[in-house]
C-alpha cells in the first residue's frame, strides 16, 4: 500500500525523522562539546554566566599549543598507533582461525569452549595486572611498549574469538563444501570464501580491538612509567590534570583528536556492517 500521499504516512515519516534526529544529536553531542571546548579561551570556559554551548569570546589555539608543545601528545599518539596496529595484527592472526575452528570443526564442544573463552575476557585487569607484572618483569619488558603489545591480546583475543565465532557460524556450511568440491582444500575454502564473506565481522574485530587499546588504562599506567612511552589514555590525564586543576581545553582537544579517527573508520565501513552479506547465498 502506498502510504506516501496520506496524512498518516506523512506523520509516520515525520515521526521517524524525529527519532533519527534525536539519536543523531545524542551521539554527535560529545564530539561537538569536545570541539567547542578545544577552541574556547580559559576565561570563557570558567565564567559562570556564559552560555556553555556557544563560543562567547573569540576562539583560541592556546589549548592545542599546550597539548602539542608542553606535552608529548604527538609521541603518545604514535605510541598508541604502534601498539594498536600490532595488537590488531596479533589478534586477527589468532582469533580468526580460533573462531573458525570453534564454529565449524569442533561442533558442540566448540560452542562450550567459545563461552569459556569469552568468560576469560571478563576477568578484570585490576586483578590480572599483578601476575602480569611478574611476567613482564621476568621478560624485562618494564617501561617498554612491547609489554602492552604482549598483554593487550590477552583480552582482545578472547572477545574477538567469540565475536568471530558468531560470524562464522552464520555462514552456511554449504558454501565451504561447494568450494571444496569446486577444487579447493578446506583451508583454501576458508581463505577464498569464508574470509571474504566475513569482512564485516573482521572489520568489527579490528575496530573493537583498536578502541580497547586506545582506552585501556590499568595496564598502561602499571607497566609504563617513562613519559616518552606513554599511550594517549595515560599521558593525557596524567599531564593535563594537575591535582584538582583540569586543563579542560587541552583535555578535550586530546580526546577529540584521538577519537575522531575511530569514528571515521567506523562510519567509512558502516555499510559493510549493515549489509546482510550472506543474503541470497542460500534458498530463495
Amino acid at each position: 500500500m502506498a502510504a506516501e500521499g496520506t496524512a498518516k504516512g506523512r506523520a509516520g515519516r515525520a515521526g521517524s525523522y524525529g527519532i533519527i534526529a534525536l539519536f543523531t544529536i545524542f551521539s554527535a553531542f560529545p564530539f561537538y562539546w569536545m570541539l567547542i571546548t578545544t577552541f574556547k579561551s580559559t576565561p570563557d570556559l570558567l565564567k559562570r554566566g556564559n552560555n556553555p554551548f556557544l563560543l562567547n569570546e573569540p576562539p583560541t589555539l592556546e589549548h592545542l599549543k599546550v597539548l602539542f608543545h608542553d606535552t608529548l601528545f604527538g609521541q603518545w599518539i604514535w605510541n598508541t598507533l604502534f601498539v594498536g596496529v600490532l595488537v590488531v595484527a596479533i589478534t586477527l592472526l589468532l582469533a580468526v582461525p580460533a573462531g573458525y575452528a570453534l564454529a565449524r570443526v569442533m561442533g558442540r564442544t566448540g560452542e562450550h569452549l567459545g563461552i569459556g573463552i569469552f568468560l576469560t575476557y571478563l576477568v578484570p585487569p585490576t586483578l590480572l595486572f599483578i601476575p602480569m607484572s611478574r611476567i613482564i618483569g621476568d621478560l624485562g619488558l618494564q617501561d617498554s611498549l612491547w609489554s602492552l603489545v604482549l598483554v593487550y591480546p590477552s583480552f582482545t583475543i578472547p572477545f574477538s574469538t567469540w565475536l568471530l565465532m558468531g560470524f562464522f557460524k552464520a555462514i552456511p556450511k554449504d558454501l565451504e563444501e561447494a568450494a571444496m568440491i569446486d577444487g579447493l582444500s578446506r583451508f583454501g575454502a576458508f581463505v577464498k570464501v569464508v574470509i571474504p564473506i566475513s569482512v564485516a565481522g573482521i572489520l568489527t574485530t579490528v575496530i573493537f580491538t583498536l578502541t580497547l587499546v586506545m582506552q585501556e588504562f590499568v595496564y598502561a599506567i602499571t607497566f609504563i612509567t617513562a613519559v616518552r612511552n606513554m599511550t594517549v589514555s595515560v599521558g593525557v590525564p596524567t599531564f593535563l590534570v594537575h591535582g584538582d586543576v583540569y586543563f579542560w581545553g587541552s583535555l578535550m582537544a586530546g580526546c577529540f583528536i584521538s577519537s575522531v579517527p575511530v569514528a571515521l573508520l567506523y562510519n567509512f565501513f558502516v555499510d559493510r556492517f549493515v549489509t546482510g552479506f550472506t543474503m541470497g547465498a542460500v534458498k530463495g
Binding site: P172, L175, E177, A178, A179, F277, A281
Partner: peptide, 9 residues
C-alpha cells in the same frame, strides 16, 4: 546443493 550454495560475494 539443495540450497544452491552460490558464493554471495
Amino acid at each position: 546443493f539443495q540450497s544452491y550454495a552460490l558464493y554471495p560475494h
